[in-house]
Amino acid sequence: MDNLIIAGKTYSSRLLVGTGKYKDFSETRAAIEASGAEIITVAIRRTNIGQHADEPNLLDSVPPSKYTLLPNTAGCYTVDDAVRTLRLARELLDGHALVKLEVLGDPRTLYPNIVETIKAAEILVKEGFDVMVYTSDDPIAARQLEEIGCVAIMPLASLIGSGMGILNPWNLQIIIDNARVPVLVDAGVGTASDAAIALELGCDGVLMNTAIAAAHNPVLMASAMRKAVEAGREAYLAGRMAKKMYTASPSSPVEGVIASAPSQ
């Protein structure tokens, strides 16, 4: 079986999905089911105190018994905020160690602050977290994060929520070639072909949220992403043909044609 292994645990799906921006929890649940994803990201936020006693809880729709939840540090701009958020997540999820670290540097681009990300990763790894880390497509940053002990490197394809697709496949290729832990594209995927390209490049998986949640039909897009990730992975494993830049190669026999070929 061709499985994705992260921090010693085996997953059959290479598509990881977020739970943000959906109309309601029922749409969230339907999209996740259609995506086939097993690892599901969640955010950690302050709760309303003393109000909305019957407010529905995300974890009722996405139960930790059924999915591997991946709490994130979205919205955190400092080491301290990110580390505290994940400590709270671990308490919330009964000692759960797998987390997604992102330390942002700028609210307009949501570009990662690599210096702060590295500092946070060092603390979290020492505290026993299995850190999947959101990073830029800088191969040196990726290598340093791996050396610290992150269990997966997750470079952006383009800005979070932009849907701009894979803007620098060459850098992703360098990161993939160098890494000994799984590399997952996190952020920037806009449609199914983007996900397929990521897997064709040799990425071990793709994490996405907006591409599904902001589609006109999120459940159908979730299904499309599932197929794109499977197709991209199979194409990668199959090994693509070599590109021939300036010469065609006929697919049909050249002998026995009833017409005569034009002279060279």
Partner: peptide, 10 residues
């Protein structure tokens, strides 16, 4: 005190 829950996010 900080009191938190899990919410939708990516």
């Amino acid at each position: 005190l900080e009191v938190v829950v899990a919410v939708g996010g990516g």
